[in-house]
Design a protein around this nucleic acid. Structure first.
Lengths: 227, 227
DNA sequence: CATCTAATTAACCAATGAATTAATTTATGT
DNA sequence: ACATAAATTAATTCATTGGTTAATTAGATG
């Protein structure tokens, strides 16, 4: 959007290679695709809509990618997986204490979302939900390693007595995703329901970390947890 | 005469009103629609697919409902909202302690999901996620009242010193949804990732309630919470 | 400058989609 | 028995979609 139309007339582009300025249409097409995919879902997105959002024609999608499947693959390989890499690195670099693991996850997730606003809705809809169009593709890659690694480290912490026995290490990962990625995907709705424009990413992080640290119960003297 | 096939092939129904047995096709169509909607999303579901899944023709959808919009409305009014009613009642009937509220929510959600397996994916994709096709429709109804009520009661408990100050009452609702409904929607995936066929609904409930009760930290003697 | 290559539009096609209609058959009420 | 209502299929219409091609223009290369 907001493309700089210089001339007064709508300037109906003519056929042929454009003059110089073309700022990498291929990238813009991927961005447009990601936005639409996140907004209404991959299955419901038409290639025409993607092309139009990028100010191009469907033929350009064919030119650069081939078919819809390959557009989707480009989105995954050139946006989705790279976006997730920093989070993975941060978790690997975290210490072994549950609080540290949780802190790395929550913080890393917040950063990832801030840098890629389209990510939560796309990931929730197309990767996590049953029947999501990216499930197979993403799980052929190295992605499952991250949750597995996290679960293993939670399990190790539990074996050392540092994580409550009644918690399941694998479900810890599920709960973490549910308290961070999922709220981000649904933010527009609950912001509206609760009239909560004051609740930003930092507030959510504080809330989640507090809940993970000591649960709901009010405690007269807050226990200082090792940090 | 020109009547091509009447013998040998048994199936192929003829034109016209069927003999007696018809077991309420209208209901079957709604069920088929809900299943497809939950599986691949509303926008990606074709009426042909719905009709075929119910063993009927697209014309029957037109006959009973009119157009796709009205099929969707029927799904909402006759399946989605009724399915959510018991949960709402259970929360209203719960006590004022955070633990009771959380218990009612987690238990009520588990029952609702057990009775309506299609609900999590449909709700997450089409109601909670940005751009979901049911957002507007559902939010014109009484639905927002439930989260608001919950948040108010959490806020009241916090004012009485029964809920930790660092938690946000509104985000408590978001966290609860994220730890119950969302995991249900993504169950097939994390069951596969963690090879966790042993983790059923009861295990998830125990885990979530434990996390809400006291957080992650291992405590030598578990504090008995008022119940 | 001549040629080749990259990037783009317009136009098109076959397949699928939603939505509708006409015809047909069975059930039901009088 | 007869008329009318209900339920169904086949066929059809029109719009949209994914995908493709030919023509056209600008840059790059020699």
């Amino acid at each position: 959007m907001a493309s700089a139309r210089k001339s007064s007339k709508p300037a109906r582009r003519r056929v042929g290679r454009p003059r110089g300025d073309a700022p990498d249409l291929r990238e813009r097409l991927i961005d447009a695709a990601i936005t639409e995919f996140a907004r209404i879902g991959i299955g419901a997105t038409s290639l025409r809509a993607v092309a139009q959002a990028a100010g191009a024609t469907p033929a350009m999608l064919h030119y650069y990618f081939g078919d819809k499947q390959q557009v989707t693959m480009a989105v995954v390989n050139e946006r989705l997986l790279p976006a997730a890499a920093p989070l993975q690195a941060r978790i690997e670099a975290a210490g072994d204490e549950p609080a540290e693991l949780a802190g790395a996850f929550v913080g890393g997730m917040a950063d990832m979302i801030a840098a890629n606003p389209w990510l939560p809705a796309l990931w929730v809809r197309e990767v996590l939900c049953e029947g999501g169009a990216l499930r197979e593709v993403v799980f052929k890659r190295a992605v499952p390693q991250m949750p597995q690694l996290l679960a293993q480290r939670f399990a190790a912490a539990q074996a050392r007595g540092r994580l409550d026995r009644r918690l399941d290490p694998r479900l810890m990962v599920v709960s973490l995703v549910g308290m961070t990625l999922f709220p981000a995907a649904g933010a527009p709705i609950w912001r509206k329901v609760f009239d909560a424009s004051d609740l930003d990413s930092a507030a959510l992080q504080r809330h989640v970390l507090a809940l993970l640290d000591h649960g709901m119960g009010a405690r007269a003297r807050a226990r200082r947890s090792a940090s």
